[in-house]
């Protein structure tokens, strides 16, 4: 579905990607993680054709995104971190914006709005940032596109809405769709992401499915971590959280934050386990 080959991209003299290779498939919700400035948003914008590669190629749904053809744009939707919605009533937004997406489903849109507790009759002008974001997410989910890109989608959402977001995403997801969510709010996306991509120093450092991670790693909290052979450990009030190789085959709940820190602090150790 998405194939990035030898991507070189940058802003002026600053290089963001220097030969990035990537393959993503439909039916997954990808969690795109990385430090500030690591290129997460740049990657999302490149996949949508908002940025042109200096070198290398990007193919998305068999299109070259930079061509920005209407038939391509109809199949992709993005919830950017900084977004714009016109100050019009919701029904006009549907009439004049959603109309550009041939697979838009009004019933799904109305259900999403209901779940997010946004009154359909309300005008976007009267809405807060968080409410507008919920409308945009609802719009994105109801367009039934094949690629949904989300840049920090839970920023600005209240606690209830974040939980609602996870539920809604879970219901909407189907095998034809590929969702890429770039975020720093790892807790918001637990139980939602099916594959994790960690981007660092202009390359994909880590790319694994949840099943593969659960099979190879365990995340536990122990009182004494001495001799635990942990890949990464972190002390807290309740004890020491450790990440270590799963040698017993027992399932443990993946702690996204700990996984991310493990990748950033002990990449080589982790690499050995996943390459074994």
């Amino acid at each position: 579905m998405i194939e990035v080959k030898d991507l070189h991209l940058g802003y002026g003299k600053k290089k963001v990607f220097n030969g990035l290779n990537l393959q993503l498939h439909s039916g997954h919700i990808y969690g795109l993680l990385g430090k500030n400035g690591s290129g997460k948003s740049t990657l999302l914008r490149s996949l949508y054709g908002l940025l042109y590669p200096k070198q290398g190629s990007i193919r998305v749904l068999n299109y070259k995104p930079g061509d920005r053809l209407p038939s391509f744009l109809q199949k992709v939707f993005m919830v950017p971190e900084e977004f714009y919605l016109p100050d019009v009533p919701i029904d006009e937004l549907i009439k004049y914006h959603a109309a550009f997406y041939p697979k838009f489903d009004l019933a799904t849109f109305q259900k999403c709005l209901k779940d997010f507790e946004i009154p359909y009759e309300q005008s976007l002008q009267q809405m807060s940032y968080g409410q507008k974001k919920k409308v945009l997410i609802s719009l994105g989910l109801s367009t039934n596109v094949e690629l949904l890109l989300m840049d920090e989608p839970t920023n600005g959402l209240d606690i209830i809405s974040k939980s609602q977001f996870r539920k809604t995403m879970g219901h909407i997801m189907n095998k034809e769709t590929c969702v890429i969510i770039s975020t720093h709010q790892l807790k918001d996306l637990e139980d939602l992401i099916s594959r994790i991509l960690i981007i660092d120093s202009a390359r994909i450092l880590f790319d694994q499915t949840i099943e593969s991670i659960a099979k190879r790693l365990t995340f536990t909290v122990v009182q004494d971590a001495t001799g635990a052979e942990a890949l990464y450990e972190e002390s807290s009030i309740s004890g020491t959280a450790i990440v270590k190789e799963n040698t017993s085959g027992a399932d443990s709940k993946i702690d996204m934050e700990l996984l991310y820190k493990t990748v950033m602090h002990n990449y080589e150790g982790l690499k050995k386990i996943f390459e074994a």
Binding site: L73, F77, Y84, F100, Y101
Partner: peptide, 11 residues
């Protein structure tokens, strides 16, 4: 924000 909305509109 407006630029993304403008460019990505399917037209």
């Amino acid at each position: 924000a407006k630029g993304i909305s403008f460019i990505t509109l399917p037209a």
